[in-house]
Simulated scan of single mutants.
Amino acid sequence: MDPNDKHWRTWTLRFLALLAADLPEQQAWLGERRLTVQTAVEEAEFACSIAEGLTGRAVFTPGHLRTLQAIARRTSALDATARTTRWADSLAADPAWDDVRTLARGFLHTLPDDRPLPLPRRIPPNPGDWST
């Protein structure tokens, strides 16, 4: 596998691991970061575009791509008001995240190496993520 393909496959799987995690794990991972739902929507759309290229190079299957497209559609359907909400708060309040969690888990269970994936490494908070 091409090193770039491997990098983007890993990135996609780590993002899906976050989406698939149980609610308390998701909230703990997000912590006090001020990431909004809009961030999640953009990341889902980005993962979908990555998967399109990776599917063309047989890294993912067309079924994987369809699942990522379903996740992107589900997050894109969140209304404009919800997009300004902190992602960690929205996870418990909006049932759309239950659908996303189920879709992400289904994606991960179709991988040949079906083992639990760790959540992505936490990135230290960016001062721009904090309200002043």
Rank of each mutant, 00 (worst) to 15 (best):
R73N: 14
R83E: 12
G128K: 10
A92W: 05
A72L: 08
R121A: 14
R115N: 13
L23I: 12
Q38K: 08
A80Q: 12
A96N: 06
A80W: 07
P124H: 07
P125F: 01
C48Q: 13
A104S: 07
R121S: 07
I50Q: 09
K6D: 03
L103I: 01
P62Q: 05
D98F: 01
H7K: 12
R122I: 10
W29Y: 07
D89H: 04
P112D: 13
T85N: 04
D79Y: 06
A21L: 05
R74E: 15
K6M: 05
D98W: 01
Q69P: 04
P116C: 08
D98S: 13
A20Y: 00
P95W: 06
F15Y: 14
A104H: 02
T39R: 06
V37M: 08
D99G: 11
L13N: 06
R66E: 05
P124T: 10
L117M: 11
W29R: 03
W11I: 10
V100E: 01
G63E: 10
I50H: 01
T61G: 00
L16E: 03
P116Q: 11
S76D: 15
A17P: 02
L78M: 15
E52G: 07
W87R: 09
A28R: 14
R34D: 10
L13T: 03
G31R: 10
R83M: 07
F15T: 10
